[in-house]
């Protein structure tokens, strides 16, 4: 594609698109620093004059916040637990304030990373066998995709039943398996399109040169579709990171993820704790932004090569 000239109407279009895309992010970050009386104020407060970190303290170090407010809430050595003597940010009381969001943050990291790795490994094998050995003929690729053809809630109920039977609810490995199962169709199809774009003669040349079939895939195919694998990995990671439904119904107390935790910041008297939710949401996008920044080069190339061709 020849480089396009930058014109004034292009500039206006891009600016509008950028505002449209980035406004929610701006609003999220802005709200995360607002005190509770500014969350839903009319007219809206764009950038708070009384910026506070209380929302962040609530999710990350709630005890610091409560001590600051004079109400001591701590676990004693005997395990006895005192109730908060004051309300936290936005009128939140009790459990919400005592527990930080760290469990959910770690839960999201562990589950997303392992589920993504599992999904990519399984998807890559499936993609190779479908693309190179026509495994399962014409029907298997569509059969794999069929899991995505109806709303997730339809398969969520059976998941709950099955998971209860085998004791997989409220466990890390259970959620990892569930996420991998749900994302494998995507990873298979995306990776398949990258492999399809690579002439199979390159691997065959490597076999003639002395590599076994398996090693030809490991040493030749995989390095050549590296960009595609990275792009697919990021895509699956985002899916897993932001998944809500399965995490909600398959976890109770021992395991949590960020999206589920977000929904818990809700108080009986004040409604949704927008500032706290915004703070956790802001925290949750940081890892993805960092990863995205580092793999940007591969991502752009990966997405233009292969993903939508054919």
């Amino acid at each position: 594609m020849p480089p396009k000239k930058f014109t004034w109407y292009n500039g206006i279009g891009l600016t509008l698109a950028l505002i449209f895309a980035l406004f929610p992010v701006f609003w999220m970050v802005s709200t995360s620093f607002k005190p509770s009386n500014e969350w839903v104020k009319q007219p809206p407060v764009w950038i708070s004059g009384n910026a506070t970190v209380e929302n962040y303290l609530t999710i990350l170090w709630p005890s610091v916040l409560l001590e600051k407010r004079g109400g001591l809430t701590q676990y004693t050595e005997e395990g006895e637990q005192k109730v908060a003597e004051t309300t936290g940010v936005g009128g939140a009381v009790g459990d919400i304030l005592i527990k930080s969001a760290w469990q959910a943050i770690w839960g999201s990291i562990i589950i997303s990373v392992f589920a993504t790795a599992l999904s990519i490994i399984v998807g890559l094998m499936a993609a190779l066998s479908i693309s190179r050995y026509r495994f399962g003929g014409n029907t298997t690729p569509f059969f794999i995709l069929s899991g995505r053809m109806f709303p997730p809630i339809a398969i969520a109920i059976p998941f709950v039943v099955m998971f209860s039977d085998v004791g997989a609810t409220d466990t890390y490995w259970g959620l990892i398996l569930a996420y991998a199962a749900v994302t494998v169709p995507f990873s298979t199809w995306m990776l398949k399109s990258f492999i399809d774009d690579l002439p199979k003669e390159i691997e065959e040349a490597a076999m003639m040169d002395g590599l076994s079939r398996w090693m030809a895939h490991v040493k030749i195919t995989i390095p050549l579709i590296k960009g595609g694998i990275i792009a697919t990995t990021l895509f699956i990671l985002i899916l897993n990171w932001s998944e809500f439904l399965f995490a909600l119904i398959l976890t109770y107390t021992k395991v949590a993820t960020i999206p589920v935790q977000l929904a818990k910041y809700f108080s009986a008297t004040e409604g949704a704790l927008y500032g706290v939710q915004a703070a956790l949401a802001t925290v949750s996008i940081v890892p993805l932004v960092i990863i995205g920044f580092f793999i940007q080069k591969h991502l752009v190339r990966g997405l233009t090569l292969g993903a939508i061709k054919r």
Partner: peptide, 20 residues
């Protein structure tokens, strides 16, 4: 026998060089 056991060299139609 697998290709790598036969010790035959082949030049492909599309040459199939290793692009990287």
């Amino acid at each position: 026998w697998q290709p790598n056991q036969r010790n035959i060299a082949m030049v492909f139609d599309n040459l199939a060089l290793y692009p990287n």
